[in-house]
Amino acid sequence: MGLVAEFEIHCEALPLVEVAEAAPAAAIEVEIQFNHGNRPPFIVHVTHDSPDAVERALESSSFVATYTVLGQAGETRRYQVIPAVGIVEQLGDHVDLSGLRALATTDSSIDRIRATPTGWIQTGWFADRDAFHEFRRFWQKNAGFTLRRLGRVGEPEEPGDGLTDPQREALRTAYEMGHYRIPRAASLEAVADELEISPSSLSERLRRAQTHLIETTVASIWPPLPE
Results as ranks from 00 to 15, higher is better:
residue 106 T to V: 07
residue 106 T to N: 11
residue 107 D to Q: 11
residue 109 S to C: 09
residue 110 I to V: 15
residue 110 I to F: 04
residue 110 I to G: 05
residue 111 D to E: 14
residue 112 R to N: 11
residue 112 R to C: 11
residue 112 R to W: 12
residue 113 I to K: 01
residue 113 I to C: 04
residue 114 R to A: 15
residue 114 R to Y: 11
residue 115 A to V: 05
residue 115 A to F: 06
residue 115 A to W: 06
residue 116 T to I: 10
residue 117 P to Q: 10
residue 117 P to S: 07
residue 117 P to K: 07
residue 117 P to T: 06
residue 117 P to V: 07
residue 118 T to M: 13
residue 119 G to T: 07
residue 119 G to L: 09
residue 120 W to I: 04
residue 123 T to K: 12
residue 123 T to E: 11
residue 123 T to D: 08
residue 123 T to P: 00
residue 124 G to P: 01
residue 124 G to A: 12
residue 124 G to Y: 03
residue 125 W to D: 10
residue 127 A to E: 13
residue 127 A to L: 12
residue 128 D to E: 14
residue 128 D to K: 06
residue 128 D to F: 01
residue 128 D to C: 08
residue 129 R to I: 08
residue 129 R to G: 02
residue 130 D to N: 12
residue 131 A to T: 07
residue 132 F to T: 02
residue 133 H to K: 11
residue 133 H to M: 11
residue 133 H to D: 12
residue 133 H to W: 08
residue 134 E to Y: 08
residue 135 F to M: 05
residue 135 F to H: 12
residue 135 F to W: 11
residue 135 F to Y: 13
residue 135 F to R: 06
residue 135 F to P: 00
residue 136 R to V: 02
residue 137 R to M: 14
residue 137 R to S: 13
residue 137 R to Q: 14
residue 138 F to N: 02
residue 138 F to T: 01
residue 139 W to Q: 06
residue 141 K to S: 13
residue 141 K to C: 07
residue 142 N to I: 04
residue 142 N to K: 02
residue 142 N to T: 03
residue 143 A to R: 00
residue 143 A to K: 00
residue 144 G to Y: 05
residue 145 F to Q: 03
residue 145 F to K: 00
residue 145 F to H: 03
residue 146 T to I: 08
residue 146 T to Q: 08
residue 146 T to F: 01
residue 147 L to D: 02
residue 148 R to L: 15
residue 149 R to V: 04
residue 149 R to D: 14
residue 149 R to S: 13
residue 150 L to Q: 07
